[in-house]
Design a protein around this nucleic acid. Structure first.
Length: 358
DNA sequence: TAGTCGTGGTA
DNA sequence: TTACCAAGACT
């Protein structure tokens, strides 16, 4: 019975696999290409908590700019962070560089799940996925799609996260010896296109005749998840400091601390807002906005942004100065602001500031 | 274990 | 508009 589940799923995958830039066609031998594990690894890291549609342009840009893991290992971390801007979860980008350098130093990716698991940014899911997809190893690959499909297939009513252990056991039981990589990707394709979180399309499902959840009429309600906490509302202020330099204008950018929210990313200076606290309203280099440059501030309005665990209303104030703002930072030509790699929050603020200009 | 950490699409 | 959520890792 368990063997027939993987057979039915692989048959479905052979006919319905999505064509993706990082994907080997179903049933095809592993590519004999030194960059193949690199491309699998890069795609898997990018796909962590991130949709296929969002990843595609970043994957194309990264592989065009850094075709091999050695190229990425040699890149300045700042360049990689800037290239990652907009994709979110920026600790992934920091770990990406660490991992690339570790892999380049050891002469390639480990082919076994245990070796992969020791690399920065590779947890249980990603190491299993790379072992199976890039190297053809039998590995039990469990992501949110697999959790959903398995919970429904076996009518597992226990709520998450407690259900993780029985889910893993069931996933282990249906993972085939051969084509484990295709099987993993088939489970994820099924979860994203057929066995979806809302309104599963059981009529199209190759496993519907095996599905206990469907039989019992509870598939759509599974897996049971804990209620989410409400996001707090936060307020903060960012500062758009501009100067004229020759023919062009420049804006003062800072770099955020390496850890925490938007860690390591370029940003506008702000008043110290965080997911836990409102900002002070004061500029970071000392004094309140009415002090040092009394009267020079122009109120540009505010942008809204939602993070994983907070809503933020970020007010924006503008000043044009001739000296230096003080503190660490750099003047950045506004003409080339796209290249600064601002995360989306500050990209929104920049659009607001520039919409008010000229 | 539970909290932290982005973003954009969708209903 | 709001709430959910997507190929999770780390602490």
């Amino acid at each position: 019975m368990t063997a027939s589940i993987s057979d039915a799923l692989l048959d479905w995958y052979d006919r319905n696999a999505r064509a993706l830039p990082w994907r080997n066609p179903p049933g095809a031998p592993l590519p004999d290409d030194a960059a193949w594990p690199y491309r699998v690894w890069l795609s898997e890291v990018m796909l962590q908590q991130t949709t296929v549609a969002a990843v595609k342009p970043y994957f194309e840009a990264f592989t065009r700019r850094w075709p091999t893991v050695e190229d990425l290992a040699a890149a300045p971390e700042d360049d990689v962070m800037a290239a990652w801007a907009g994709l979110g979860y920026y600790s992934r980008a920091r770990n990406l560089v660490k991992c690339a350098r570790a892999v380049a130093a050891r002469g390639g990716f480990p082919a076994e799940e245990a070796g992969l698991r020791e690399l920065p940014g590779l947890g249980a899911y990603t190491s299993a996925a790379i072992a199976a997809i890039a190297f053809g190893r039998r590995a039990v690959v469990v992501d949110a799609n697999v959790e959903r499909v398995v919970a429904r297939l076996f009518a597992l009513r226990q709520p998450l996260p407690g259900a993780r252990k029985p889910i893993r056991e069931k996933a282990e039981a249906i993972t085939p010896e051969m084509r484990a990589g295709d099987f993993a990707q088939a489970m994820m394709d099924l979860g994203s296109q057929v066995c979806t979180a809302k309104a599963p399309r059981c009529l199209l499902c190759p496993l519907s005749s095996d599905c206990e959840g469907r039989e019992k009429g509870i598939a759509e309600s599974l897996p049971i998840k804990p209620a989410k906490k409400a996001k707090p509302e936060r307020r903060g202020t960012a500062f758009w400091i501009e100067r004229i330099n020759g023919p062009g204008r420049e804006v003062w950018l800072v770099k955020r601390p390496g850890t925490g929210m938007l860690g390591g990313m370029r940003a506008l200076p702000d008043d110290g807002w965080s997911a836990r606290d409102d900002g002070s309203g004061a500029a970071p280099w000392g004094g309140n906005p009415e002090g040092m440059w009394a009267g020079v501030w122009e109120d540009l309005g505010a942008v809204r942004h939602t993070f994983t665990h907070a809503h933020l209303t970020l007010g924006l104030r503008r000043a044009e100065i001739s000296g230096e703002p003080g503190g660490e930072g750099e003047w950045w030509p506004i003409e080339r602001l796209e290249e600064a790699g601002l995360p989306t929050l500050y990209a929104k603020a920049a659009r607001l500031a520039l919409a008010r200009e000229s």
